[in-house]
Amino acid sequence: MPTDRDAVETPRGETVYVDRAQAERGAKGRFYVAYTAPGTDHKWGFFCGNCESADNAMDTMGRIECNSCGNVRKPDEWDAAHE
């Protein structure tokens, strides 16, 4: 299990561990997978590589949006009825 993850602080003061080898493509930059501990598979969420922020949200369709810079990842599934 990898332990070479960057420790970052979330807006709530939690420490999460960012794995820069695992990323999702966003419009302005990558979203990196963040974990609850350095040597675990338990995902915490995503970290915005564009503005280096952990303040982002993911909806039920897999769309990720950074609340700090507006970086966005398109949803896994898309349906015109959702617009």
Rank of each mutant, 00 (worst) to 15 (best):
F31E: 08
G29V: 06
Y17V: 07
W44E: 06
A7S: 15
A27R: 12
E24N: 09
I64L: 07
D59K: 02
R30Y: 11
D19W: 05
P38S: 05
A27I: 10
G39I: 01
D79H: 12
N67T: 02
T60D: 12
K28G: 05
Y32C: 07
D4W: 01
E52K: 12
V16D: 04
E77Y: 08
D6R: 11
A21W: 00
E77W: 00
G49T: 03
I64H: 04
Y35V: 07
E9N: 10
D41M: 04
A81G: 05
D79V: 02
F47V: 03
A81W: 06
F47S: 04
T36D: 11
V16S: 09
V16P: 08
Y32T: 07
A34K: 02
G29L: 02
A54I: 04
E24R: 14
V18S: 10
Y32R: 02
Q22I: 13
R20S: 11
T40N: 04
K74T: 13
G62I: 01
A23D: 09
V72D: 05
H42P: 00
A54W: 02
V18K: 04
A57C: 09
V8K: 14
H42E: 15
A7E: 14
R5V: 08
P2L: 08
T36N: 10
F46D: 11
C69Q: 06
D19F: 01
R25K: 15
N50M: 05
D4N: 15
D41F: 09
S53I: 05
V33P: 00
G70N: 06
Y35H: 08
A37W: 01
M1G: 15
R25H: 06
Q22D: 14
G13C: 09
N67L: 14
P2T: 13
V72L: 11
G13Y: 03
E14A: 11
R25A: 15
Y35C: 08
K43G: 00
R12M: 10
E24M: 10
F46E: 11
E52V: 04
A54F: 02
R30I: 00
F47Q: 01
H42R: 13
N50K: 11
T40A: 08
N56R: 05
F31G: 09
D4K: 07
N71R: 05
M58G: 10
F47Y: 15
K28M: 12
A57G: 13
V33C: 06
F31T: 07
N71T: 09
V18H: 03
Y17H: 14
R30C: 03
G70Y: 04
F47P: 10
M1L: 12
E77R: 07
G70F: 03
C66E: 08
E83Q: 12
F31D: 09
N71M: 01
T36V: 15
A80C: 03
T10R: 01
Q22P: 00
V72T: 14
A37D: 13
K43Y: 04
S68G: 00
Y35A: 09
A23I: 00
G29P: 11
P75G: 04
G13I: 07
D6G: 00
T3H: 07
R20K: 15
F31P: 09
A7H: 01
K43S: 13
E65R: 12
